[in-house]
Design a protein around this nucleic acid. Structure first.
Lengths: 333, 333
DNA sequence: TTAGATATACTCAATTTGAGCATATTTCTT
DNA sequence: AAGAAATATGCTCAAATTGAGTATATCTAA
């Protein structure tokens, strides 16, 4: 994070592809986005574990020394790379999440820190409900669903819309980042969807579908495209992090060893995409035993100096919180 | 589940291995357990997605038609199969969880339902704290850690012990199934650890380490071994399910369409490995809007007939629960 | 010197949780 | 037929947590 902006590390998409060189020439014209998540091959001879391989090429591409990482998801669908050949090899990617403090970058990948809400402008509610939701997303999705012929199918999509983007009955669920992205992709409102349709057409020799100016404009409203399905991967990651926020002390990797409570709150807010009630937030983290005061004070700020806190190491071994769902139900014994 | 026993589906381990036939002959003597999780190859030509591949071979091996499945984790460490060759191919497995009602089995895999606490006897606290924890596990682990020479390393293991198996400061955390399994494996208290040590020795030509009678006895106390690292995979799954239990309505796949609240409670208890307070559990699921009454009653039971409930479909779209960790902190706006 | 900004303390009602008691409706035993 | 045992369900009540403020403290900038 810098200031209040949560950032992800991107690299320039190297010219790698599963397609044959011939196809590549033909298809490369459909400008794939050069913005990619850091990625690299897994070499079973070199690396004892997937995680060690990860550390290795992240270091090479970005100069970054990762600490704690966590496996995210394994992506193996056909045509993740739309240039993939039927009958050819499959691109299977094992995604990992690492939370690190922002540091200067080096390495071979032309790495860059980017505001992750550039990729999901509808996910940041810190300044209130984003206008884009009601002005562009909902009406267009509703329109697209309305045009579905089959009754059952339309019904299903209608329900997915309510779940993903909320409704009277269901509030906006900040964790459903992936569901939202997938709906937008299926409705071809996302840049990648237009691009992939073009590529598929080019490869199969069909005439390229025409994306009209309005579709293009919508796609531009809906954030920066990424290479391949990287934005989908990123959506999965954001959802996962938001979920974890609730029950694991996960944000401290993004903070210096000592920090003020407002700094902590700002990080949580940035990841969650919401504003929190300040006094109650303090009470929660202090009474919850997550942090302990250092006695020192921050001098840089505008008003009354804030006390510096540190993470209570013991938290990692104590039960961090017991959630509210099913068996928060009292355990007997 | 049958009655109060949670079960997993196992198959007979087919004679598959990454080792060469020559090595296989040599090593097959170290009787690998025939108890395995259902598994199968992924064929990118056949299957559009990993998940479709999964459905396919599960059907073949067990005759089971899976509904909802969820990706668990991808396992790619070297020597997951201890017969693996240095420089040879790597066995990478993408694990999935499916929750299904118990049905009769068919298929080619000689599938069987087995009590999952047969594999983790220390995880079932429904009849109180299992004696095995204090009589066998803790003292032996403590002893093993005590013999570690390096001070820092011993300290680290001591902390892992507290986190995994609890201590004065930290209570037993029912979700840390994997941490517990890994400690036991590292301490060579688990059957698989003894077996893998033997196999590694045989392959490298070193003299086989002698597991004395006491180690053998301990290993037998600590549950049924499985093929390869399947028990580790299973530990990961159990931990994941227990985590999900808290904030997602995940148990209903294990119940008939209508059920009594006690049935529901028994399922939750079986997965969680704990007993719950009955009246409060009712209040939680009813007031939480998870279930709704059908008006019908169960007639089979001993005492007063229990009302039959069903899952409220709407729950799937509503916020299921908002957890307690960090930003249960009130959202402003 | 004061306005503005920020931090922190404290209050109070509403809600949720933990623990239990009481009552209702069955079947089983004698 | 009369309990006894088992199960389901309703209800209470104190303790803890949460939601939403108000009040006060301590700094910087003008």
């Amino acid at each position: 994070m810098t200031d209040e902006v949560p950032r992800i590390l991107t690299v320039q998409r190297a010219a790698h592809s599963l397609a044959t060189p011939a196809q590549r020439g033909e298809v490369e014209a459909w400008a794939d986005s050069p913005v990619a998540l850091p990625f690299g091959p897994f070499d079973p001879n070199e690396h004892r574990t997937l995680e060690l391989g990860l550390h290795n090429w992240v270091e090479q591409q970005t100069g970054l020394d990762l600490g704690y990482v966590e496996q995210l998801y394994t992506f193996g669908d056909r045509y993740r790379d739309p240039r993939e050949q039927a009958g050819g090899p499959r691109l299977v990617s094992v995604g990992y999440i690492a939370l690190v403090r922002q540091v200067p970058l080096s390495g071979a990948g032309e790495a860059e820190w980017r505001n992750w809400y550039d990729f999901f402008p509808w996910e940041d509610w810190r300044e209130g409900r984003p206008a884009i939701v009601d002005q562009a997303i909902r009406p267009r999705l509703q329109n697209w669903i309305g045009r579905i012929g089959d009754d059952d199918e339309r019904q299903t999509y209608q329900e997915r819309l309510s779940i993903a983007f909320g409704a009277q009955s269901a509030p906006w669920d900040f964790e459903r980042v992936l569901e939202r992205y997938e709906l937008l992709y299926e409705a071809e409102m996302i840049g990648e969807a237009l691009r992939d349709a073009q590529i598929r057409a080019a490869i199969s020799g069909r005439p390229a579908p025409q994306a009209d100016a309005e579709m293009q404009a919508t796609a531009e409203l809906l954030g920066t495209p990424m290479a391949l399905d990287n934005r989908r991967v990123l959506a999965t990651a954001l959802g996962r992090i938001r979920g974890k926020l609730k029950y694991r002390p996960v944000v401290f990797d993004l903070l210096p060893p000592t920090f003020t409570l407002l700094q902590l709150q700002r990080v949580v807010e940035a990841l969650g995409g919401v504003r929190l009630h300040k006094q109650n937030f303090r009470r929660l983290v202090i009474n919850g035993g997550l942090v302990e005061p250092t006695g020192k004070h921050d001098s840089q700020s505008r008003g009354r100096p804030a006390e510096l806190f540190r993470l209570r190491r013991e938290v990692l071994s104590e039960r961090p919180a017991s959630g509210v769902g099913l068996p928060a139900a009292r355990i007997i014994g």
